[in-house]
Design a protein around this nucleic acid. Sequence first.
DNA 1: GCTGAATTGCACTGGCCAGTGCAATATAAC
DNA 2: GTTATATTGCACTGGCCAGTGCAATTCAGC
Lengths: 208, 208
Amino acid sequence: MTVTRGRIDKRQAILGAAFTVFARDGYRPASVDAVAAAAGVAKHTIYNHFGDKESLFRATVAALTAESLTRNLAAVDLLRLPTGAEDLAAVLSKVGLRLAECYCDERSQACRRLLQAEIQNLPDLQDIVREGATDKVNEALADRFARLALAGQLRLTDPAVAAEQFGALLTAPLETRSRLGSRPVPAAELTEVTQNAVQTFLRAFGND
Amino acid sequence: MTVTRGRIDKRQAILGAAFTVFARDGYRPASVDAVAAAAGVAKHTIYNHFGDKESLFRATVAALTAESLTRNLAAVDLLRLPTGAEDLAAVLSKVGLRLAECYCDERSQACRRLLQAEIQNLPDLQDIVREGATDKVNEALADRFARLALAGQLRLTDPAVAAEQFGALLTAPLETRSRLGSRPVPAAELTEVTQNAVQTFLRAFGND
DNA sequence: GCTGAATTGCACTGGCCAGTGCAATATAAC
DNA sequence: GTTATATTGCACTGGCCAGTGCAATTCAGC
């Protein structure tokens, strides 16, 4: 909609509009004309930058993946050895809630929907997202759990499994409550799911 | 492909073919002509039975949901009080593996993919599946957990949460390992995920 | 200011597909 | 057999859309 002329940030505008339109309509039904209109750009410009619709879609997903990685790593980074009065449950709750918010973020949900819908036609997209975000977040989480185990705060044999299961206890219930990502999850349910996850996680792996 | 003439089981043939084609191509890209060809039926017959493509899709998903419910309830039904030499871990593993197999079943995976892809356009499909299968399976599982708790075999306050989390520990890792349902999960990984899930579940809720 | 590259607008092709119309045929039930 | 209904084959409409071609315009950098 912006009337900016020039070639400077057309690319960004296109990627932003592409996500909006793809998220709203889905990859197939979304028309390149609609993306062009939403970006305030001629259709030709899109083809200049991205070649074809599929490449545009790939670039869109890749951009979202990078964005998601940053937010998720920031969440995991909150997971440190509890200091002073703080206890492990509180720290885990903070991190869990933050991860839950990332998972329920409108953009992340839309991205997962698009991915799942097109996974048969574009199986490599799955790899882009895995290598670009999921795996790294899981590894970072496993690293933190390993530290906590060494510090005697957790009892676990395989930090990777613990990370996978901590994620599972968060995401699977959220997937249900968000109706497969089709509606926002109320804050109350977000904390409820997080509390349940942390509680069960600590019953299984806590050191008390 | 069958050369059967007559009106008797056209409907079933159409539903079967519709699932095959939808699962292969996705709802949008799949053409009604392709379904007709796969069912060995004229396109008109499909419109006679189902009215339009969307209704055909709904009927297809509903049929798959019913099928899935049966299989899942049969799995949950294996969850009984351990008798004699059997221990709880063994029973849970059996049930967990069975549920994991249900989740990874090719037809179930395809159904979830289709659902997720079209959830924005046909949000009521989600409800059909929830009310038709997911909720009932979770309730059945919660019932069994409540029994086990009463019998002193589990320590838990909310059987519904325990059921949700048992499912989460199974499905979320399987979702990852099946690449969002786009490839079969090797049997070895199936048992690995199940073992991890049961182990963590019992560390959290077991009575020892 | 000038120049080359990017951008724009518009029209157009080719392809795909949902759904319909119609006339002919087959089927089930009586 | 007869009849009402289901089915078939085929052609057709109307609509949507990816991608292209082209001429005119606009911009960035010098």
